[in-house]
Amino acid sequence: MPDKPRKPWLAGVLTLVTRGLGHLYAGYPVRGLILFGIEQFLVFAFAVAASIYTPDRYLLVLLVIISLAFNVLCIVDAVDMARTHKDHYETARYNRWFAYVGYVLVLSAGVSTVLSGAIKSYLIQAYHIPAASMEDTLLIGDHILVDQRTAAREPKRGDLVVFAYPEDPSKEFVKRVVAVEGDTVEIRDKVLLVNGSSVPEPYVVHNEPTMIPATENPRDNLAPVIVPAGSYFTMGDNRDRSYDSRFWGFVPSENVKGTVRSIYWSWDRTARAVRWDRIGMKVL
């Protein structure tokens, strides 16, 4: 095999592309595979932790620190391994461009993609809030974590949920569950009643002073309706500016993706600034 000394800086760059790729280049493929496996385990462990324990800002900071520390460790280790061969290195069969491409495709684009898909489908998923229907609970620019475990897909009254919009499943909405199957829902002059009793809703805001009669639309007045089996009645916290179950009906249980747990990032696009006080905030 030809003598091609390793370049430490290149080993570091390749490690940034995919964990273990720099080690493959440096002549330590097994070491690289082990580090790649550790990375995937950490990703899975983080997802499990985030779904079981509602992530506050301290947990989020801890996860970021661990992730950054591990990535720095991998880069430094790859550079050190390459330095052992910076003056002399007989290339192996795996030191070919197609082997590097195959490594990235199989591990990064293959294993990582499958694991990421499983996590998003069964554990936790991140969403971005693009509209104002849930203000002030959720603001435009908030990025939320949604628990997608089985139990989280069976929400209770008061839970915030992500669901596929019944009239167009390609769209996903975030609303609050105000009634479950068997409940009778009614709205009188903007006051929500469930099973005949008014519901305390400290999170609700009304930004429109006008009162719309039921003969025009159901925003402020809704005749009693019973939530059918396997369904939910959802509403936005920004009641006067939310398109929800009052207008298009019930949410089938199979449409529910999960329950909102916390805000992991928030960007105020008007002020062009991070809302630091909202990062790690639990959603109630």
Rank of each mutant, 00 (worst) to 15 (best):
L139N: 11
A152Q: 02
D159M: 02
D136Q: 10
G102T: 08
I140R: 08
E135V: 09
D159K: 01
Q125H: 11
A109P: 00
D136A: 12
E135K: 13
T113W: 09
G110N: 12
V111I: 15
V114P: 00
L160R: 01
S108G: 13
P169Q: 05
L105E: 05
T113A: 13
V161R: 00
L105I: 15
A164Q: 10
L123V: 04
R149Y: 03
L123W: 12
S116I: 08
L145Q: 05
A164C: 10
K120I: 04
A99M: 05
K120N: 14
P169D: 11
P130M: 12
F163T: 07
A132P: 07
Y127A: 01
A151T: 08
V106S: 11
P155G: 09
S116W: 02
R149E: 02
H143M: 11
P166V: 12
K120C: 07
S112M: 08
V114R: 03
Q148A: 13
Q125N: 13
D147C: 06
K120V: 04
Y122K: 11
Y165P: 05
A152K: 03
A151V: 12
G117E: 13
I129N: 03
I119R: 03
Y122C: 00
E154V: 04
P130V: 13
P130R: 14
Y103W: 14
G117A: 13
S133A: 13
I140D: 05
I129K: 03
L107P: 01
I119F: 09
V114Y: 10
A126H: 05
Y103G: 01
L105D: 07
Q148R: 15
Q148L: 10
R149K: 11
E167G: 09
K120G: 10
G102I: 09
T150D: 13
D142H: 05
